[in-house]
């Protein structure tokens, strides 16, 4: 049976919002709990980088102090990028397609939503913030595991994969962008930034994996090669690009209309850019490449929407 565009769209957004929830939780967690032993100036810069990575909208919220902004990003349901708001959006999308996901998936995302809601009420989460963020992250991981283990790996599953990988690639790019200054070869001292680099790796869940490949000796060049260009690290942007392309090819294989090839060209280019790009001069071209990744992500999102979800009647009937 063909898949309704609305259903595909909800699966895709369910997955994106859940990935965003996990990303926000990890950034808040690392910033608050890994980086407490740096001096005041460094501390201020560190918060600024966090706001930048999370696209903090100062005009909308109007605060400069860390504590209220952390509260905003964690517990304010009115703020669209808060944990509570994104898990609510993820769960609402799942609710619209309950018939198309497995019962186990629905139960897990519903439980995670209820747990988060319960913890942020009356600011209960603040009593054990680290544990709270840990619960959010493991809840998201559990959902991904359940998805892979209980759902048919057909078209709907592929839309879920695309949503997650696209969100992840985009988030990692934003994160690197906010850290550009401390990654540049000029003007840094090894000792001063080491803690920040470790924190950056941890924000990508990359520290342990990095140590296995490169030992704990962290350098910006190796970090970029690992987080952006590594072929087998599952959170690298290249890995995400592969996953996106595989899924669009799988979806396209079932479709006879010519538009499906359009999305495959875009994801194929994106994949090639990461597979063959930035090997030697990863650091000097980083700023430029990050912009390319961000543009690639938004282009893929837009073309996917045009081809499978919100196409015009004329384009659909001209085939």
């Amino acid at each position: 049976m063909a898949m309704l565009s609305r259903v595909a769209d909800s699966l895709y957004w369910m997955s994106r919002y859940l990935e965003r929830t996990e990303h926000t939780a990890r950034l808040l967690d690392v910033t608050q709990h890994q980086l407490i032993d740096v001096d005041a100036t460094a501390s201020q810069q560190r918060w600024h980088r966090l706001w930048q990575a999370l696209h903090y909208n100062e005009a909308m919220a109007g605060s400069h102090q860390p504590a209220p902004i952390v509260e905003l990003f964690t517990a304010d349901g009115q703020y669209p990028d808060s944990l509570v708001a994104t898990i609510t959006a993820a769960r609402e999308n799942a609710r619209q397609v309950r018939e198309h996901i497995s019962s186990e998936m629905w139960e897990q995302i519903n439980r995670l939503y209820l747990d988060i809601r319960q913890q942020v009420q009356g600011q209960r989460w603040q009593q054990a913030a680290h544990r709270f963020y840990g619960m959010v992250k493991s809840g998201s991981h559990l959902f991904q595991g359940i998805t892979d283990a209980t759902m048919i790996h057909d078209e709907g599953w592929n839309f879920i994969q695309i949503g997650r990988a696209l969100e992840r690639a985009n988030n990692t790019a934003s994160l690197l962008h906010s850290h550009l200054r401390i990654l540049q070869p000029t003007g840094y001292e090894q000792g001063a930034h080491h803690a920040e680099w470790v924190a950056l790796l941890k924000m990508c869940t990359a520290f342990e994996a990095y140590c296995k490949v490169h030992t704990p000796e962290v350098t910006p060049t190796r970090m970029i090669q690992f987080v952006v260009y590594d072929a087998v690290f599952p959170r690298s942007i290249r890995f995400c690009a592969n996953s996106i392309h595989e899924s669009t090819v799988a979806i396209g294989a079932k479709h006879t209309h010519g538009h499906a090839q359009r999305i495959q060209r875009v994801t194929g280019q994106f994949q090639a850019m990461l597979e063959y790009g930035g090997v030697d001069d990863a650091l000097s071209t980083l700023a430029h490449n990050i912009v390319n990744v961000q543009q690639g992500c938004s282009q893929i999102g837009a073309v996917l929407h045009e081809v499978h979800i919100d196409y015009t009647i004329d384009s659909a009937l001209s085939n």
Binding site: L4, S5, K254, H257, I313, N319
Partner: peptide
């Protein structure tokens, strides 16, 4: 289907699927 899944063209009803109308 919901109302927003259906479109009318030339007095014919179609549903929007990922593989077209």
């Amino acid at each position: 289907v919901e109302g927003r899944d259906l479109v009318i063209h030339n007095n014919t009803v179609y549903m929007r699927t990922t593989s077209g109308l």
